[in-house]
Design a binder for these strands. Structure first.
Lengths: 255, 255
DNA sequence: GTCTCCGTTTGGAGCACACAAACAATTTAG
DNA sequence: CTAAATTGTTTGTGTGCTCCAAACGGAGAC
């Protein structure tokens, strides 16, 4: 498919990024701990941390290292760049109140869905996902509603990269099946997730588009299967997410 | 003073961090632009960006590169780690409403003040500072109220590193003078900024402490000198920030 | 006291990185 | 429309940087 001679990559930088990821996942860590985890010598990790410290990307507290507040700054900047963040938060607050369920907004990056905002209604389910979390696209309503509006070759590239892992009996793991489903979703305007990622959880999602081709992200409502039934699941909630997605679309144009 | 043999640092990592900083400051950039700015060859920057891309720390849009949403995730995690973020936002909302001025919260890192939250009251002044922004400590009320509770040698280390640059005629640029002022602040419990950073802007700040030694940060109120006069400037507002700082202190213990 | 575990430093060998130059693909000039 | 000028990308190459292993020094543990 893609002959793609591997682009030359820099080992030292790779190690540092692994160190950053490790600190991200463990909050704080010491030299030996990281060295063991990444299978590198203590001296190597020490040098990398010293570099990160000099550039103020980490903070040293005794012998513990943690990511510095610089990442707060970087995160804020990335968030501002999105442009639609404020619109999304406003609209999703309303939607959470209306539906009394968990509502979320996600966008695609590097072939995965990235959750940008979530807001729980009064009786909303708790989920592990939070801001910045990454998730497969093929097994969530958010993901499928985004993929439905991508050109076929882009979807194929994503499948090539990440595959179609199955989580429950309902997960779509065949690409031909997925493409059929995406077509239905594109025509209908919204996507369902009937316990495809987590058993007992049903979701509905609608895409937020900018123009004809570009997809900014998607809005979803999630709830326990016991509450997501009949007309509510098949009509009311789809209407609600579609309306919300539309509101965001319109407001996004003016920001 | 500090013989401090320079800890060995990794050049390649340094370059990548400079690339990240450049992308942070310019939102999006191309290879040649970055190469020129950092005075490196195109090929070099290309390799670094390729590495960042593979590790999904940047996104490529045509020939433009930008920081990926991964930094949103990293930023959220760093924010969560602080632990007092929610307490601060709640309390500062109240304080902004009460005072009708700009209120801010900052903490110290690498010898600079880092703004974590700001909230404008109804008539609040606009400032350039926003979340994550770094500022010298010696010329702001926030900074001075933090420094006042640091041991002398720690303050000296910070002065050694960053100096005492002057911004207005009122800026304290002498270290002996600064130490005298810090003593007064420590005894009094709050700090003033009388147009020491920006002409026409006065501020009051009080520290948020955890135990005897540790300083979590500081709360400040800022406003135009014309409104910050007499008893309001000298008594009312200091009382308000002190009370707010206290509320945060107490709530921080339980989180 | 010794022992063991840290973090840090050092020396050295191998190869990875940064450069320059060639290449390809667009865009601009004319 | 062609030619020239910029792009981004690739490749080859030498140097000097990185990574490792081992030694060092300090902090607890017992």
């Amino acid at each position: 498919m893609t002959p793609k001679t591997n682009p030359r990559t820099i080992q030292a930088v790779g190690i540092t990024l692994e160190v950053i990821d490790y600190l991200h996942e463990h909050d704080r860590a010491r030299v030996t701990e990281i060295a063991d985890a990444l299978d590198r010598s203590k001296g190597t990790i020490h040098c990398h941390l010293a570099t990160l410290l000099e550039k103020e990307h980490v903070v040293k507290d005794g012998d513990d290292y943690q990511l510095s507040l610089r990442y707060l700054e970087l995160g804020e900047r990335v968030k501002d760049r999105l442009g639609i963040y404020d619109v999304v938060t406003d609209e999703l607050s309303d939607l959470a109140e209306q539906s009394n369920e968990l509502v979320q907004f996600a966008t695609e990056e590097h072939g995965k869905g990235v959750y940008l905002y979530k807001k729980g209604g009064e009786r909303a389910v708790q989920t592990a996902s939070s801001i910045g979390k990454r998730e497969y696209l093929h097994c969530t309503s958010l993901g499928k509603s985004i993929l439905a509006h991508y050109p076929r070759e882009r979807v194929e590239a994503i499948i090539d990269r990440h595959g179609l892992p199955g989580y429950t009996p309902n997960t779509t793991t065949s690409s031909t099946e997925l493409f059929e489903e995406l077509e239905t979703i594109r025509d209908r305007g919204y996507a369902f997730d009937d316990e495809e990622k987590i058993e007992g959880l049903r979701c509905v999602a609608a895409p937020v588009k900018a123009g004809e081709d570009e997809v900014l992200g998607a809005v979803s409502i999630s709830g326990p299967s016991s509450r997501m039934t009949g007309d509510r699941y098949r009509e009311e909630l789809p209407d609600m997410v579609s309306r919300s997605a539309n509101v965001i679309e319109i407001n996004a144009k003016f920001s």
